[in-house]
Amino acid sequence: MALLELESLHVRFRTREGELEAVRGMDLAVEPGECVAIVGESGSGKSQTLLAATGMLAANGTASGRVAFEGESLLGQPARLARVRGPGIGYVFQDALGSLTPHLTVGAQLAEALAVHHGVSAADARTEARRMLERVQVPDPDARLGQYPHELSGGTRQRVAIAAALMPQPRLLIADEPTTALDVTVQAQVVALFRDLRASLGMALVLVTHDLGVVAGLADRVIVMYAGRIVEEGPAVALFASPRHPYTAGLLAALPRLDDDLAAPMRTIPGVPPGAGRDAGCAFRYRCGHASGRCEVRPDLAGSGSSRVACHHPRDPGGGS
């Protein structure tokens, strides 16, 4: 049984300008122990998908569809959600400072995460907190226990946030842009930390990011979103080697690399990212080099096995971009 399952998940927001559909039918299954990365432009619905799944949407948002964790339906079940959050699903945000309680010391913060769900004694919780800080390679853990979040550097803060999420030993960790606010060197350390934690703790990881480099270092499976829908999904190695959706191919080509050919201009995807409007056809067709008349009708996500693509003219699987 899949650990986390989403079925035709929709997320809608009531706004001044009318209703906005941020997620337009997501299907996703996360197996125990695997790492799934969700990538896409800003506004493509990556974060809202997971916030909806864990019942953390903003007040003007509603989710519909099906969300199940270990077979139990979660949508509209606040009591069950409260039980699952923490020991079932841990969450790490981009803004580590925002997700830590400002007036609690690091030690108190970590101990609390444990006490709430496991009824562990204070002394034991503290020992465990110290061990966890060591586990996420926070320098000088003893000193950190007494410090407040704002006294920490960005990288350490993110490690503490990860430690807090890991305290109740979740079976699934959701990390939303966990490295975006960090410098490259720190980012590389945090990616290495995630890889290491996964190997030792065996938890599943859902990683939301727009950084394909981070994805390459961590993900088993990649899901590419565009305008609120999945446009392609597949095993990381295959998807990076031979993307099938023109958007995926464009995104990979547009990624600046240290060995880019400098004589040529940088590769880009023409046009602008889509707005929130409703659209009958393929949302990518205004920017797509392969669009045809057929693309006025929205393609379904189809495919065999673990690879699926939503495109009328997918690229040749053998051919690369």
Partner: peptide
């Protein structure tokens, strides 16, 4: 050197 080395490469085969 460390800065350049930290830049991720978008290729799972290498990166892992």
């Amino acid at each position: 050197r460390m800065l350049l080395d930290a830049v991720p490469v978008a290729d799972p085969q290498i990166e892992r």
